[in-house]
């Protein structure tokens, strides 16, 4: 009784219904990369962000997954890393310090990682808004596959309520900004092997566990369909028109669905 839940849906609608700048034809290129080592993806992000800052390219959304890696955000507390570097190595997990916001997190196969490289200076200069909007993108995309996800007050990320078991986190967020150009982004556990998480206290939150879509959905999980949903909602909520970037791993299905969104 002491707390209350906020109506995320209604609030979110308001939050996101107001992208400030009236945008003309603002495009955002989607790059679908498959599995990319973390370090390489960092370089790619840095390159895209630099070029975005110089206004040489449009906004981008990079979708990929990483081989197993534990990353330490700028605010990471060492005590949230529960295993030594050697133990991680033995389990085939890389350890990387990075410049995103947030604490410790894990990336690995079966996770959908999204790195939006967008200029918030042209969308809305508000990091709170940006985080809530990323959450909303994921919440709506999960809704599309029949899963009710929500926010938890004070704990950034996307959560799944499991009745008496309490909430569990299905997607983590962490963002870096340089002159209002974003990098890093979100990581959504689709069918990640959750045993990897025993090495860390994810995001420094020990009270609630992490989960994956696999744990909550019995049926078939269609990653491509989910990616398409995310791309669609991302475009709507950020006020960007999404196009498929060159060099993207494109299956016929992806292109077809992507075309339907664009």
């Amino acid at each position: 009784m002491g707390s209350y839940t906020t109506s995320t849906e209604v609030h979110a609608l308001r939050v996101i219904s107001e992208p400030l700048s009236s945008l003309g034809d603002r495009t955002c290129k989607v790059y679908r990369m498959g599995r990319v080592p973390y370090g390489e993806a960092l370089k790619l992000q840095a390159d895209l962000a630099d070029r975005r800052k110089r206004n040489e390219i449009a906004d981008s959304l990079v979708l990929l997954e990483h081989p197993p890696v534990v990353t330490l955000g700028r605010n990471a507390r060492r005590e949230n890393l529960l295993s030594s570097a050697e133990q991680l190595e033995r389990d085939g997990i890389e350890l990387v310090e990075t410049n995103r916001g947030g604490d410790v997190t894990f990336h690995g196969p079966g996770q959908l990682v999204g790195y939006p490289i967008v200029d918030l200076g042209r969308i809305r200069k508000d990091v709170g808004w940006y985080l809530r909007t990323l959450e909303e993108v994921l919440i709506r995309s999960l809704q599309d596959i029949g899963l009710a996800a929500s926010r938890q007050s004070g704990m950034t990320g996307v959560w799944i309520e499991r009745g008496d078991a309490g909430p569990a986190k299905v997607a983590a967020l962490g963002v870096h900004l340089s002159r209002w150009v974003t990098s890093h982004g979100f990581a959504l556990n689709i069918d990640t092997d959750l045993r990897y998480y025993r090495h860390i206290v994810p995001c420094g939150i020990s009270a609630y566990p992490v989960t994956s879509l696999r744990e909550s959905l019995a049926g078939e999980l269609d990653r491509e369909a989910l990616e398409c949903s995310i791309v669609g909602h991302f475009g709507t909520l950020m006020g960007l028109s999404m196009t498929v970037g060159a060099g993207t791993q494109s299956t016929a299905k992806w292109l077809k669905t992507a075309a339907a969104i664009v």
């Binding site: 700028r74 605010n75 916001g101 947030g102 990091v127 985080l131 870096h176 900004l177 340089s178 002159r179």
Partner: peptide
């Protein structure tokens, strides 16, 4: 929260050159 100074006292800094890094919940910014 100031997380990192990219320059020391006494250093020269150019306009628009990254000077420090801050963090708020889940977001770091230069």
């Amino acid at each position: 929260t100031v997380t990192k100074w990219l320059k020391k006292a006494g250093d020269r800094v150019g306009k628009d050159e990254p000077l420090f890094e801050i963090s708020t919940d889940k977001v770091d910014a230069e």
